[in-house]
Every structure is written in structure tokens, then in C-alpha cells.
Design a protein around this nucleic acid. Structure first.
Length: 307
DNA sequence: AAATTCCACAACCGCCCCAAA
DNA sequence: ATTTGGGGCGGTTGTGGAATT
């Protein structure tokens, strides 16, 4: 029952492609065009998996691809879009003619992420580290307003109110923090899905379309998939704490956890006090970003969207 | 000059959704 | 109705060359 396997997975060649193999794919596509990639290895005389052939063509051999460095305009476009929709590389790449999602992803991971970090900006939230640390320290279980934003009434805020009674002093209770974040994240995803299903109610004619400023290379093309939330609470909270040499280091100093010099020039003591307004800030900021993405990319929330 | 580290990026992995069998 | 593969996607790894020690 079911389909026959596309290839003998155990015996197909893997690893770097040779010029001869590239030539075979190019010759095959030139004469047959792009169709069923599972047939390509057999018809082109390649001992490769069809999926591998497809990726080789898509990411490297396509004649419309650029192989030179990214321009400042393209860089600006990537930064702006990542700020809004997160790591949706395929969506970002669609606005950069001649670039693939792999290109954009590599450029982000090797250049832009480090560049932002050196500038004191968290590459995940695009916020200054100093601001993030301030917000981290203020998250607590204090009751927060459930009236200021309708989305807060049944979800994230409720969770924080009911489960966030443990004060996370100096982030010493990392397990509590981590579990809290995971739960918030699940709620946020759920929220996002609910909101997406009702996205028709958002006006699309009066909003400004995303255009990456004045960048001529950043085209307003149509999106292909409906994105998941642009970032997770996990990333939001922990972005500056991941075990990565590029992010500020948290160290213990006189019994307190402090942020190292990379953060803001001087060691920035994490704020101890807990305030309800900060929890609002955190949650509402997440929702605001959802809303921002919705306004900038109304088309990708349209169920009938034709791509 | 040799060894080591860093960097860029091609390629792969694993997951998801959908369609074919 | 069920199983399986194709295609798309984001995340991760492997590797070769460059830079540094």
C-alpha cells in the first residue's frame, strides 16, 4: 500500500555536488523543464535523491540567482522584515529577487545577527538589551489588568495571574522561568491561531503595505504561507541569555545576577522589583507585534489569498 | 611555516501539510 | 480509509578557505 520509494536512500550519493553532476541537472532542466523531481535523477543519470536535486537546483543552480554579496538595501530589507515577521526566510526571500531562503538565512546567521548584537540590539526582539533586561526583571505574578486589551482576558494574562505567583528573583529559579515561558508561549500560539481565523475582520485597504523603506530591491511580492507567530515568548525572554558567545553574559556578582559589559557598557543590575505594569508591557508588546504584522502583511492572513 | 580558530555557506535533517496510490 | 512520498520550510551541521596565533 502507498507509493513506492523515490530512490534507494541507502545507496544514493550525498555530500558536495561535482561540476559534472551540476551539468547533468542543468542539461536536464534545459531540455525538460522543472517537473517531478523524483524522476530527475533517473532521467538525468544521477545517483542522487530527487529531493537533493531539487535543493541543488533551487538554492544554487537556478539561472536567476544572484551569487554576489548582499547590498545595503537588501540588508535593510532583511532587517525590517525580520523585525516584523521573524525568521520566515522564504517570505523574506520572496521580496529579494535572486535570493533564496537559504541565502537569507545564512546571511542572517553569519552577519546580521552579530551586527545587531554588537550594536546592543537583541537580534530576536530587535529591542535594545538594556530595555529587555529591565523588562525581564519586572515580570512577576502580580495581578495585571485584563481590561486594557481584550486578548488578555482569556489567555496569556490569565495564565500569568493564575500561575505566575512565584516571584522569579534574579532569575535564580530558572526552571520556574522556563516553564512559565513555555506555558505563555503555548497560550500565545493558541491566541494567534484564534486571531488568525478571524483575520477577515481586519481592514486591508487602508493599511500601508510593507515596502522596506526606499529599497528598490525589496519587492512587494505575495506571500505563500500564513506565518506562525513572529517570535515565541521563549525567544522573547531568553534571547539575551542563550549560551552563545554573541550575546551578553550573565554573571554572579555579590550574590546578584548581573549583565556583563556587552549589555550596555556597564554592568546592568537586573531589576529586582516586580510590577504589574511590566507584565502588561511584556504581554501587550507581544500582541502589539502580532497586530503590527497583521497590518503590514494583511494579504498573508487572507484565507482566500491566491499565491 | 605550522597549528589553530574563525567564518561563510552548501547541504542535510526533520517536521509539516497535502496529494497520490 | 490508510499509508507513503513530494514539496516546502526552518534549523543545524559539515567542510573548505581565510585569518590569526
Amino acid at each position: 500500500m502507498g507509493r513506492p520509494p523515490c530512490c534507494d536512500k541507502a545507496n544514493v550519493k550525498r555530500g558536495p555536488w561535482t561540476p559534472e553532476e551540476d551539468a547533468k541537472i542543468l542539461a536536464y532542466v534545459a531540455s525538460h523543464g522543472i517537473g517531478n523531481w523524483t524522476l530527475v535523477p533517473q532521467k538525468a543519470g544521477l545517483n542522487r535523491c530527487g529531493k537533493s536535486c531539487r535543493l541543488r537546483w533551487t538554492n544554487y543552480l537556478r539561472p536567476d540567482l544572484k551569487h554576489d554579496g548582499f547590498t545595503p538595501e537588501e540588508e535593510e530589507c532583511i532587517l525590517e522584515m525580520h523585525k516584523t515577521i521573524g525568521s520566515r526566510w522564504s517570505l523574506i526571500a520572496r521580496r529579494l529577487p535572486g535570493r533564496t531562503d537559504n541565502d537569507v538565512k545564512n546571511y542572517w546567521n553569519t552577519k546580521l545577527k552579530k551586527k545587531l548584537t554588537k550594536m546592543g540590539i537583541d537580534p530576536i526582539t530587535h529591542k535594545p538589551f538594556s530595555q529587555l533586561f529591565s523588562e525581564y526583571g519586572k515580570i512577576s505574578g502580580s495581578p495585571i489588568s485584563r481590561n486594557r486589551n481584550p486578548f488578555l482576558q482569556n489567555s496569556t494574562a490569565l495564565w500569568i495571574q493564575e500561575n505566575g505567583t512565584q516571584k522569579i528573583d534574579h532569575f535564580t529559579n530558572y526552571d520556574v522561568l522556563s516553564k512559565s515561558i513555555q506555558a505563555i508561549n503555548q497560550e500565545n500560539v493558541h491566541l494567534f491561531n484564534e486571531a488568525s481565523s478571524a483575520a477577515d475582520s481586519f481592514p486591508s485597504s487602508s493599511v500601508t503595505r510593507f515596502g522596506c523603506g526606499s529599497s528598490p530591491s525589496c519587492e512587494t511580492s505575495r506571500a505563500q504561507t500564513v506565518p506562525s507567530p513572529p517570535f515565541s515568548c521563549n525567544e522573547y525572554i531568553l534571547g539575551g541569555f542563550k549560551n552563545d558567545s554573541a550575546v551578553p553574559v550573565i554573571v554572579e556578582e555579590d550574590g546578584d545576577l548581573v549583565c556583563g559589559d556587552e549589555c550596555s557598557g556597564n554592568s546592568a543590575r537586573i531589576v529586582e522589583e516586580c510590577s504589574s505594569s511590566a507584565a502588561d508591557t511584556f504581554v501587550e508588546d507581544m500582541l502589539a507585534r502580532d497586530m503590527e504584522m497583521r497590518l503590514q502583511f494583511p494579504e498573508i492572513f487572507d484565507e482566500n489569498y491566491d499565491y
